[in-house]
């Protein structure tokens, strides 16, 4: 069964009498129990989509459903069945950790005890601070409390809007491990992130940019579909080297990639004549490579 269905959803905001499109007719679906990542930069439309799916705003056109319930007609039912962690920390800063959790359990007519097994792994890490006010917690701990509160009513689907933004690499890794174990409990998870390196941690991803979904695929499928060879090059004159490759025959694209440059070869080109003094090796396709190629092919 499809837990989330998004069908030609459009949404525009009116900014000073001009309509600015946020979502330009996007469609995809997420089967039950999948960990689906919506990956794209700020301003791509990720938060707008989350707000539509959690019934906080209405789409201009198109339809969407969560667990078979329509986001417009069945909004009250959806609200009982989903957990939502917004991008901005939205718990009560003047309540303690424990008070926040009890509050959210209460408004969903349940108790912390009843669903403790679901939050145990994450909540145990912040339990020593249960009498601390939420506003005093560090970023990583706020994130864990927000996840606990979004889970405490045993939602069938979980919507996490940029949960790892501003969180350090160690906490991010722990957080993704938690998401995978929740997915294994059968909870459908839609998670968004601007960080391409998190794509490989999802079952499937949708790459989103300026209101369009450019591709939906598994992380491996995405890399495999790139279809061109990439060389990683470096020299002691990186800016010059970049210009050299940009203008070289057989090169589709060249751009900086960390300490190296990635040189994308045209289809069916296997090799280049490379001058001395430039180190070359074949590079594995990165999700960023895919994103860049898709962005360029979607221009216009």
């Amino acid at each position: 069964m499809k837990a989330i269905v998004v069908d030609h959803i459009e949404k525009a905001y009116a900014i000073k009498k001009t309509k600015v499109p946020a979502l330009k007719g996007i469609s995809f679906d997420v089967p039950q129990g999948e960990l689906f990542g919506l990956i794209g930069p700020d301003g791509a439309g990720k938060t707008t989509l989350f707000r539509i799916l959690t019934t906080l705003i209405l789409p201009d056109s198109g339809t969407a459903s969560v667990n078979g319930l329509d986001v417009v007609k069945d909004f009250l039912k959806i609200r009982q069945e989903v957990g939502y962690m917004p991008g901005r920390f939205s718990l009560y800063t003047d309540l303690t950790v424990e008070e926040n959790l009890n509050f959210f359990a209460n408004i969903f007519n349940t108790t912390v005890k009843e669903n403790y097994h679901l939050i145990k792994d994450v909540y145990q890490q912040i339990e020593p601070f249960k009498h601390v006010r939420a506003g005093k917690l560090s970023g990583g701990m706020k994130q864990k409390l927000a996840l606990s509160c979004a889970l405490i009513h045993k939602p069938k689907a979980l919507f996490l809007d940029e949960p790892t933004t501003g969180v350090d690499a160690v906490s991010r890794k722990e957080f993704w491990e938690l998401l995978r174990s929740l997915r294994n409990e059968g909870i459908t998870i839609l998670v968004s992130t601007p960080y391409m390196d998190e794509a490989s941690l999802c079952d499937r991803v949708g790459l989103i940019q300026t209101g369009n979904i450019m591709q939906v695929n598994t992380p491996e499928g995405l890399r495999a579909s790139f279809g061109k060879k990439i060389l990683a090059v470096r020299s002691n004159q990186m800016l010059k080297t970049l210009e050299l490759f940009k203008n070289m025959e057989g090169v589709e694209d060249a751009y900086p990639f960390g300490e190296k440059h990635h040189v994308v070869l045209k289809k069916n080109v296997q090799q280049l004549n490379i001058p001395d003094g430039i180190e070359v090796e074949e590079a594995a396709v990165d999700i960023e490579d895919c994103f860049i190629a898709l962005m360029k092919s979607h221009v216009g």
């Binding site: 794209g40 930069p41 700020d42 791509a44 933004t165 501003g166 601007p194 391409m196 940019q209 751009y255 900086p256 960023e288 994103f291 860049i292 962005m295 360029k296």
Partner: peptide, 10 residues
């Protein structure tokens, strides 16, 4: 460059 698309980031 947090949150910026990969082309702009470059």
């Amino acid at each position: 460059t947090g949150g910026v698309d990969p082309i702009t980031r470059r």
